[in-house]
Simulated assay, not measured.
Amino acid sequence: MNPATATAADLVTLRVEPLTRAAFAPFGDVIEAAAAASHYAINAGTTTRFHDLAAIDTSREGGRPVLSLFRAQPRELPFTVTMLERHPLGSQAFVPLSQRPYLVVVAEDPAAVPRAFLARDGQGVNYRPGTWHYPLLALEQTSDFLVIDRAGPGNNCDEVELSAAYRIVAAAI
């Protein structure tokens, strides 16, 4: 089947799951205060540091960490997923700067049925190197994300068209 010409009858509907550390573990880290390896007071007790929230991995083949801002336009539901991408040489972390929900779509490989997660206020994600995922899916309004990923030599973005098309009907859980 050609995903670009799929009819509604051809589409597989993905169930949207809550984004939890346990459910997302095969793909990377959920970035939230509850995921901290430790937390402690700093700055004379006026600030709490939630430490070591994600395994940032950017040093493969001479890479270095780079900090960027992504401004994502909102997507309308229902939405059809027909492709995935991965970054084999480094992790990629997304930390929302707004309090809006967004969707995270990941798969073990391009032949597997993807999983869709709803990220709530205060939740970011860090994809492990090589994790297949759909690009950023903001909901409701234009949303900014702080992104930590890899810069450097080598091809660090693979894209693949899926053999099936997957539909996300609603983000409500």
Rank of each mutant, 00 (worst) to 15 (best):
M1H: 01
P3I: 00
A6G: 00
D10G: 04
T13C: 14
T13F: 10
L14C: 14
L14R: 14
R15K: 14
R15F: 10
L19S: 12
R21Y: 12
A22E: 11
A23S: 13
F24E: 09
A25N: 04
P26A: 06
G28I: 03
G28R: 02
G28Y: 02
G28T: 06
D29C: 03
D29Q: 05
A34M: 08
H39I: 04
H39S: 06
H39A: 06
N43T: 01
N43P: 00
A44T: 03
G45D: 01
T46M: 00
T47D: 06
T47M: 07
T48Q: 07
T48A: 06
T48P: 04
R49E: 09
R49T: 07
H51C: 07
D52C: 00
D52L: 02
L53A: 02
A54F: 05
A54T: 04
A54Q: 03
A55L: 06
I56C: 11
T58E: 03
T58Q: 04
T58H: 03
S59F: 05
G62T: 06
G63E: 03
G63C: 02
G63A: 02
G63N: 02
G63S: 04
L67T: 05
L69C: 06
L69R: 11
L69M: 08
F70T: 12
R71T: 14
R71F: 09
A72M: 08
A72V: 14
Q73E: 14
Q73I: 10
R75S: 15
E76A: 15
T80D: 01
T80N: 02
T80V: 10
T80Q: 04
T82K: 00
M83R: 13
M83E: 15
L84T: 15
L84H: 13
E85H: 15
S91P: 01
Q92R: 14
A93R: 06
V95H: 13
V95G: 08
V95D: 08
V95T: 11
L97N: 08
L97V: 08
L97K: 10
Q99S: 04
P101S: 08
Y102S: 04
Y102I: 04
L103R: 13
E108I: 09
D109P: 07
A111D: 10
A112Y: 09
A112R: 13
A112I: 12
V113Y: 06
V113A: 12
R115S: 15
A119N: 13
A119T: 12
G122E: 13
G124Y: 14
N126M: 11
R128N: 09
P129M: 01
G130R: 03
Y134F: 14
Y134R: 13
L136H: 10
L137R: 13
A138C: 11
A138I: 12
A138R: 13
A138M: 09
L139N: 11
Q141L: 07
Q141Y: 12
T142W: 10
S143T: 12
F145E: 05
L146R: 01
L146W: 07
V147H: 00
I148D: 02
G152E: 00
G154I: 06
N156G: 08
N156A: 09
N156Y: 04
C157K: 15
C157S: 13
E159A: 08
L162A: 04
S163F: 03
S163M: 06
A164G: 02
A164I: 01
A165E: 00
R167G: 01
V169P: 05
V169L: 03
A170R: 12
A171I: 08
A171E: 11
A172I: 09
A172W: 11
I173F: 09
